[in-house]
């Protein structure tokens, strides 16, 4: 008997490990493939003379009209960038206070049983498909709000923003709750021990300590809102108007791709322009998510030192 390595066993184990490792690396490959193929379909705008006869980079930022299908096509991104910003802002104005307050309530004030209910409840909201939210906003909510406030236009940025808020509340809530829960119990005990009320402990000690994480949650929600498609496609009225008025119909970058990619002529300037919008979306959400992640990790490091 010796302790020398058994060849077959060693081989089997390294085969398995190798396979698992290769499979795990797929995630990296996929991210690069996404970037590569979105780039590949957007770059002709910069480098292909034929495409450039139709559209160049300059078109994206000149004028204020997105009219890709007309005798004199316009490709200004301003109206749809504005649309995305407008709808995202409205969604966040609505969702952030609700989600953060709910997270604070459930981790600081709610009793055991209620707490056990809130989280699954929010998860259920998260489980509503965005097409259902869009359907609800389009068929039910829009008419209701129009009648309630006497709006001129049924499908507008506020309608879409609210519905989008429904979609991002769970995202913000769950990350904010994680951040608040990550604040060590000793902080609360110290505050209460010094005679602070539970409200003071929650708002003067816990929330400030969790602030980077809560900001991360807000950014995370923002990434979601910018990237969300179906809700805005269905609820915003789909008109690429350059308007700051939240009561007019609007169109986001995501909705533009969704609405037009189906009918676009393959290889046309319009086709490449839609991929370019996708590239912008990819880059923007990438940056937002990176920042969100960094903030959250920063919070964890601040609270617990270097991560295990």
């Amino acid at each position: 008997m010796s302790l020398q390595r058994k060849k077959f066993r060693y081989l089997g184990e390294s085969l398995i490990e190798g396979n698992i490792k290769a499979t795990a690396s797929l995630a990296i490959v996929v991210i690069f493939l996404i970037l590569f193929f979105i780039l590949r379909e957007s770059l002709p705008i910069f480098f292909n003379p034929e495409v450039q006869q139709e559209i160049t980079f300059r078109h994206f930022f000149s004028g204020i009209q997105w009219q890709p299908v007309s005798d004199n096509p316009r490709f200004s991104l301003w109206p749809i960038i504005l649309g995305s910003l407008k709808v995202t802002l409205i969604a966040l104005l609505f969702a952030v206070p609700v989600a953060v307050a709910a997270a604070l309530y459930s981790s600081e004030f709610a009793g055991g049983r209620l707490k056990e209910l809130i989280k699954p409840g929010v998860e259920l909201l998260a489980g509503i498909p965005s097409v259902v939210l869009g359907f609800f906003a389009l068929v039910v909510m829009a008419s209701f709000l129009k009648d309630l406030f006497g709006w001129q236009i049924r499908l507008n940025a506020i309608n879409a923003g609210l519905a989008l808020g429904f979609a991002v509340i769970p995202a913000i809530y769950s990350l904010a709750e994680d951040a608040i829960n990550a604040v060590p119990k000793s902080f609360r005990e110290a505050a209460l021990g010094l005679g602070a009320t539970p409200w003071q402990s929650a708002t003067k000690v816990v929330l400030p300590a969790a602030l980077p994480g809560v900001s991360a949650a807000v950014l995370f929600g923002m990434g979601r809102a910018v990237g969300e498609t179906m809700v805005v496609l269905m609820a915003a009225g789909n008109a690429p108007l350059f308007s700051f008025n939240p009561l007019e119909s609007t169109r986001t970058m995501t909705a533009t791709i969704a609405a037009e990619l189906g009918e676009v002529v393959f290889g046309s300037g319009h086709y490449h322009a839609l991929f370019f919008i996708g590239l912008v979306l990819f880059a923007v959400t990438f940056a937002i998510n990176l920042a969100s992640h960094a903030l959250f990790e920063g919070l964890m490091t601040r609270l617990y030192g270097a991560r295990k």
Partner: peptide, 8 residues
Amino acid sequence: RNIDVVEL
């Protein structure tokens, strides 16, 4: 070298 920890 070449010790099999499993065997060990």
